[in-house]
Nucleic acid binder design. Sequence first.
DNA 1: CGGGCGGCCTGGAGGC
DNA 2: TGCCTCCAGGCCGCCC
Length: 274
Amino acid sequence: MPELPEVEVLRRSLLSRLIGDRITGVAIRTRALREPLDIARLLRDCEGRRVLDLRRRAKYLLIDLDAGRTLVVHLGMSGRLTLVPSTEPEEPHEHVAFHLASGRRLRLRDPRRFGHVFSLSTDTIEADRHFARLGVEPLSPGFGGAALAAAAMGRRGPVKSFLMDAAVVVGVGNIYVAEALHVAGVHPERSVARISDARWDRLAEALQQVLTRAIEAGGTTLNDFADAAGQAGYFQVSLAVYDREREPCLSCGRTILRRIHAGRSTYYCPGCQH
DNA sequence: CGGGCGGCCTGGAGGC
DNA sequence: TGCCTCCAGGCCGCCC
């Protein structure tokens, strides 16, 4: 489900609804998510706390609470975080729910259980093992062709896996890497050792353009992405190559191909991408 | 040592 | 209809 745009859309949809509310209780139905939940710590860090701010780092949603605690939510592949009235019946795979003083609950549904929920001290986030090795935010001022070129020094392998490496640049998953490579006209299998500075610039700009437009469109809803209010995104109608195998390229008319790289589907246009 | 791949899970889609 | 296989937006650890 979620790459950077989806998590950002979720964050923005929660901003006006969640800030200032207070967590009165945490209900944990399933402990076995990607990492076993630390129930005692979640209760200790969250119960009675007020929500101060909502931030995002890579694909992690950061919910800053008072008393210097931060609740971290990662949606994995199938996670969905929604805000509903407390009277709303529990849904299947609703593993964790945060009950709020306003009479609502923030609930995490995640059928595949690749998601993750944990809490830590706000001022030690950067040092936490989930965050310590993360690379640059693609929508931050420090990102650009030069940053990519520098990170590529001495590296080999296909540019697609390079751009999906969170130690290089964060938030870019299988959909948006395919779209950005198409916008930039770069073949996914091109070696990072054979990319010129001009190409790095095009790739950086393409990434920023694709991610920004996806956020503006409310994210990509292929199967089940929705924001905190259950609203689906519509960037899927703008996808140029992802999930379009055997369909014509909208730019040049050639047939979109699908290959498997590193166990993941890779969609590209053989006419536009070299 | 960097890169590739399997494994973690469930559900939906499509083939027979 | 039912059963089987394949596939899925992420990420980590193991392997070469």
